[in-house]
Design a protein around this nucleic acid. Structure first.
Length: 572
RNA sequence: GGGCCUGUAGCUCAACGGUCAGAGCAGGGCGCUCAUAACGCCUUGGUUGGGGGUUCGAGUCCCUCCGGGCCUACCA
């Protein structure tokens, strides 16, 4: 039995995430976690909300709430939605937790002790009316290059020219519109990533099995221009982890907080501690997942994230861990995803474009979305969600291929042979062939799941469902029952067992339907079918089963058209 | 500007440099009647974005052009 630590990129707190966010990290992470658990491995699957930073402060202000209350409320909302999607986190933590505060300060102290922190004085724009320093992109003005009046302080979106906020003509705060801006001196801490560059490079180079998307982004940052840059890890904000050197004050840094991208990855560790706290476990319980000197040397750590998160997970966070000089677990595998687009454009949280997680669940149960999203995961390139494709895939794959299979088997069995597994007949050549075919396919499915080939695994699973229908067609119990009832009983016995096996195999993708199938088969036992032949005799003659409600309903053309219209515009 | 990814059948996607470029859906034909008008079998359909090159052999490697997307370090 292996021990597998799984983390999903932690969603930002400032709103409900859209389906693109979901499929890029939490959902495939859940797929993997569920699969590894069902294979009998010990899994710790962690996620949390990422709560610090300027956008959180602004979102709270907009909602008219203190930022801590806002975050607490949004955390609860995201937690509930995650449960709605059946995301099986062992713990859903908060980057604002006391555990993360202490760990973040601890890491900063260790880095400083090891000479990897540099204090740098910078000049930044301060908005007098907002009473805050403004990140470059929160300053707008007229582009000196093209005259565009809505240019941001980091880059003009119109002519794409890179800008410095002081380049802007008539600069103003993007938050309040105030023009009372001034440049002020401020001191910040920088993580000396340059000093760790060679170690990071060697480490990245050793990861030859990582997805191209992951390593190419990492190498771009390692080699681009002057190479890896030192990174500021503090900000002049009110909401965040206060800058401390371990448990001691940091002279000159009073009133400042750590940069959200410094504390957010540390939450992966802190979340494990939160998990232990929530269950009343000792520190050793979480340390055996994270400290290689305390039992984590045999842990395999896998991270899931969208491509925009890759630099922080391949460079910044590893630099933090390496630089600490302490035996923390480094990630073993990074599965990264491209973006999911929505009907010809991008999903957009800020513009409210696309389908958001709460809306999705109002329209259809989790399994429908899980199946479509995972079977179309943007692994090799950006993918696109359209309602036509969603309707076609869900109706065909779930309702027709799987749902109808369960329906036709259970209804035939119950109607013709009673409400228990029939005992007559014996397996023949068709059954032998099915078992051989299924066995080979399950082994392939296992290999794809192990490799996190999400789309291919979904296709293989679908193929596994299909052979059930092929078998029924060939065996034709509806004919056999007229001439050779014992033969029909043998067919039905196998088909009912097939439903149970399908439930187990399908559970990572569609957990609710899988549960319904197991319940209908009266089978609390969900042992992975290591041996197909014996797995297909798990339900013995005389075992009671029930006919379940249809597992999946079809999406009608009217519904599709309605949803298309409803989600075409901007979220209100 | 630089970097990376991407372009394959009407649609969504596969194909360690090596049979005739495959699969699902959609389309066409046949079969079945247990089932959610579901299922099964057969089948139409591609000058692999254009052009050049390397190679015994290129969807795959190189050059170039065209199109789409992402990143570019102070949003997270």
């Amino acid at each position: 039995m292996a021990r597998i630590l799984i983390t999903s990129a932690i969603p930002y707190i400032n709103g409900i995430k859209h389906l693109g966010n979901l499929v890029g990290s939490q959902l495939p992470a859940d797929l993997y976690a569920r699969y590894q658990r069902s294979r009998g491995h010990e899994v710790l699957f962690l996620c949390a909300t990422d709560e610090h930073g300027t956008p959180a402060e602004l979102a709270a202000a907009k909602a008219g709430q203190p930022v801590d209350e806002f975050c607490a409320q949004m955390h609860a909302v995201q937690k509930e939605i995650a449960e709605g999607f059946r995301l099986s986190f062992d713990h859903f933590g908060r980057s604002s937790s006391a555990r993360n505060r202490a760990l973040t300060q601890h890491f900063a102290g260790r880095l400083a002790d090891n000479g990897l922190i540099e204090e740098v004085s910078e000049r930044q724009v301060f908005s007098i009316d907002d009473n805050r320093f403004l990140p470059d992109r929160y300053i707008t003005g007229t582009c000196p290059n093209c005259g565009y009046t809505q240019a941001r302080g980091d880059q003009c979106e119109n002519c794409t020219k890179q800008l410095d906020p002081t380049d802007l003509i008539d600069p103003r705060s993007a938050i309040s519109g105030s023009t009372r801006l001034e440049v002020r001196e401020t001191k910040h801490l920088f993580l000396r990533q340059r000093a760790l560059r060679d170690r990071l490079e060697a480490w990245i180079d050793s990861k030859t099995d990582w997805p191209v998307l992951t390593t190419s982004i990492a190498k771009k940052w390692l080699y681009d221009g002057d190479g890896l840059q030192d990174r500021g890890i503090t900000r002049d904000l009110h909401w965040g982890v206060p800058v401390m050197r371990g448990d001691r004050p940091w002279p000159g840094m009073e009133g400042k907080v750590f940069y959200v991208w410094f504390d957010a990855p540390i939450e992966y560790i802190a979340c494990a501690a939160e998990w232990a706290d929530a269950h009343g476990y000792a520190d050793s319980a979480w340390e055996r997942w994270w400290r290689t000197d305390k039992g984590a040397e045999d842990v395999r750590y896998v991270q899931f994230m969208g491509k925009d998160n890759v630099p922080f997970h391949t460079l910044s966070f590893p630099a933090t861990i390496m630089g600490s000089g302490e035996p923390w677990k480094l990630v073993d595998y990074i599965k990264s995803f491209n973006y999911l687009n929505y009907d010809g454009g991008q999903f957009s949280t800020s513009q409210g474009r696309g389908v958001f997680m709460d809306q999705a669940l109002q329209v259809l149960p989790a399994d429908y979305w899980r199946w479509w999203l995972l079977s179309h995961a943007p692994e090799n390139s950006d993918a696109e969600f359209t309602w036509e494709n969603f309707q076609a895939s869900v109706n065909k794959d779930l309702a027709d291929v799987l749902g109808n299979f369960v329906s036709r088997v259970t209804k035939f069995a119950a109607t013709k042979l009673g409400d228990t597994v029939p005992g007559g007949g014996a397996p023949g050549p068709l059954e032998t062939a099915l078992i051989a075919d299924l066995g080979a396919r399950v082994r392939e499915y296992e290999a794809l799941m192990e490799a996190m080939e999400v789309r291919k695994a979904a296709a293989e699973l679908r193929g596994i469902w299909v052979i059930g229908n092929e078998y029924l067609q060939a065996a034709a119990p509806w004919s056999a029952i007229k001439t050779d009832p014992a033969r029909a009983e043998a067919i039905v016995r196998l088909a009912l067992n097939l439903i149970r096996v399908y439930a187990i195999l399908s559970q990572p993708f569609i957990p609710d339907a899988a549960q319904a199938m197991l319940a209908a088969m009266g089978s609390p036992d969900a042992q992975w079918p290591d041996h197909i032949g014996s797995a297909l005799t798990a339900l013995p003659p005389g075992h009671a089963f029930t006919v379940p409600e249809n597992l999946f309903r079809k999406i009608t053309d009217e519904e599709r058209a309605d949803w298309q219209t409803r989600f075409a515009g901007v979220r209100t």
